[in-house]
Nucleic acid binder design. Structure first.
Lengths: 111, 111
DNA sequence: GTAGCGCTGCTAGATTTCAAGCACCTTCGG
DNA sequence: CCGAAGGTGCTTGAAATCTAGCAGCGCTAC
C-alpha cells in the first residue's frame, strides 16, 4: 500500500521494484489481487498492464497514518509529534516561516 | 508492534485486548513468538507471565515511523507533514506557543 | 502479417500463519 | 499444604500466503 500511495498509482512491476527485500513477481501479483479483494485498491487496464490505485484517497489515508503514529508513539499528543518532526527534519528558513504563518492562522481559528 | 510500543511493554493478554477485530489468544502468542524470532521484541518473565518489550527503543522507532509517513504521504516534505498535522490537530494556545518557540530555536540552529 | 516481449489468468505445491487443545508450571487463597 | 486460576510449551490441523510455471492476450517492431 505504501508504494501505491507514494506513487499515486502503480503497476505490479513498479511495486516489485519499489519493495525492499523484494519478493517474487508472482507474490506481488497475488498481493495486489488480495488488496483488491479487500477493497484497498482498484485496477484499470492501461495498455497491456494493470494500474492499481488506492480506493481511499491519499489525503484521508494520510490523516489516519498521522493519527496512528501520534497515538502509537506520542501518547496521542500531536504537539509532541509536531515537535519531534520539526526537531528531526532540519527545515529551511522558508519552511519555518510557512509553519509560523500556519500557527498564527491556527491561533485565529482557535479563538 | 503498535500495541507494544503504545504500552511500552505488554503481555499477551494486553495485546489481545488492545487489538481491534481480536484474533484468538493462541494467535497472539504465536505472533509474539514470531516477533521475538525476528528480533523485534524480547520478553522477560514477570510472575507467571511474559512481558514483551520492543528491542528498538521507542524514540528510534518513532523517528522511522515519522520518516516513513513523510516519505509515503508527503513526498518527503516534512514541512507539508507538519502543516497537515497542525491543521488536523486543533492544538491549544499553549501548544501553539510551544511550537513557535521550537521554530525559533530551529531557526537559531539552522543559522 | 507476424514474431517477440511483457503482462495477466490460472494451477499447484511449499511455506507460513491462525487456531484449538492439552499438559505442565507459577502464583494465590484458604 | 493443596487446590484453583491463569499462563506458557507443545502438537496438530486448517487456512492463508509465497512462489514457480505455463497458456493466452495485447501491444510493438519489422
Amino acid at each position: 500500500m505504501d508504494v501505491v500511495y507514494q506513487y499515486g498509482q502503480a503497476t505490479a512491476a513498479e511495486v516489485l521494484d519499489a519493495l525492499p527485500d523484494p519478493p517474487s513477481y508472482s507474490t506481488v501479483r497475488a498481493l495486489l489481487r488480495v488488496l483488491e479483494d479487500k477493497g484497498h485498491v482498484r485496477h484499470r487496464r492501461q495498455g497491456p498492464r494493470y494500474v492499481f490505485r488506492p480506493t481511499v484517497p491519499r489525503e484521508k489515508a494520510r490523516r489516519s497514518a498521522l493519527a496512528r503514529v501520534v497515538q502509537t508513539f506520542f501518547d496521542g499528543s500531536s504537539q509532541a509529534a509536531v515537535a519531534a518532526l520539526i526537531d528531526q527534519s532540519s527545515l529551511s528558513g522558508a519552511d519555518l516561516d510557512r509553519l509560523e504563518a500556519l500557527i498564527d492562522r491556527a491561533r485565529q481559528e482557535g479563538r
